Computed example of a mutant assay.
Amino acid sequence: MKHPLPVNPEHIAILRLSALGDVCNLVPTVRALQRQWPQARITWIIGKGEYSLLTGLTGVEFVVYDKSTGLAGMRALWRQLADTRFDVLLHMQQAIRASILSLGLKANVRIGYDKARAKDAQHWFTQRQLTPRPRAHVLESFMDFARLLGVEDDSLAWDMPVPQSAYEEAQLLSGDAPYLVINPCSNVRLRNFRNWSAEGYASVIEHAWTQHGLKSVLTGGGNTQERTMGEQIQQLCRPESVINAIGGTSLKGVMALIDRARAVVAPDTGPIHMANALQTPALGLYATTNPQRAAPYLWREFAVNAYPEAVRTYLHKSVDDISWGQRVRHPDAMSLIRTEQVITQLDALLEHTTHEPFAARSPQ
Rank of each mutant, 00 (worst) to 15 (best):
H91Q: 12
V109M: 13
Q36L: 05
I12P: 05
T29S: 13
L105H: 05
Y167G: 06
N305R: 02
E231Q: 14
D176T: 12
E199K: 07
A13R: 05
N25H: 11
Q80H: 07
S197G: 04
V88I: 15
G248V: 00
D87V: 14
E10F: 03
T353G: 02
R312W: 00
L173R: 04
T344V: 04
S323R: 09
T55G: 05
A177I: 12
Q341I: 06
G248Y: 00
M274S: 02
W124M: 13
P281K: 00
T280F: 01
W37V: 10
V138A: 15
G59F: 12
A348N: 05
I111N: 05
R227W: 05
E231S: 12
V304Q: 06
N223E: 08
T29L: 06
V181W: 01
V264G: 03
Q211P: 00
W196P: 04
R194G: 05
T219G: 06
S99F: 07
A208H: 01
V204H: 03
L346E: 00
L285K: 07
V181M: 12
I42F: 01
L15E: 13
L71F: 14
A32K: 09
I100G: 07
P184Q: 14
L236D: 01
Q94E: 02
S68A: 15
H207S: 09
F302S: 03
A72K: 15
V181Q: 03
S318A: 09
D320I: 07
A72E: 15
M1H: 08
K119S: 01
G73I: 14
R133W: 10
L149W: 12
P6N: 12
D87L: 12
R361T: 11
A82C: 02
G150V: 02
E168H: 13
Q171V: 10
S102H: 12
I182V: 15
D66P: 00
M160R: 08
A146K: 10
A295L: 00
P291G: 02
A263W: 00
L278I: 12
L336P: 06
A170Y: 07
S165H: 11
M255K: 10
P357A: 10
I233Q: 01
L54R: 04
G175W: 13
A303D: 06
R189L: 14
D154I: 15
Q171P: 00
D332G: 04
L54A: 05
D268H: 12
L214E: 03
D120G: 00
L156D: 01
S323A: 13
V254E: 04
A136L: 09
P9N: 08
I12E: 05
G150Q: 10
H123G: 00
G104F: 11
H273T: 03
Q171I: 03
H212C: 08
E351G: 07
A98D: 03
D87Y: 07
H3Y: 11
Y314N: 07
R260P: 02
G253K: 09
H355G: 08
Q232F: 04
A95Y: 00
R135V: 04
Q345A: 08
G270D: 10
D22H: 04
A13D: 05
D154M: 15
T289Q: 13
T29P: 08
V304K: 01
L57N: 06
R41C: 14
Q211C: 06
D332T: 00
G222W: 07
S318K: 13
I111D: 10
D176Y: 04
F142T: 11
E140N: 11
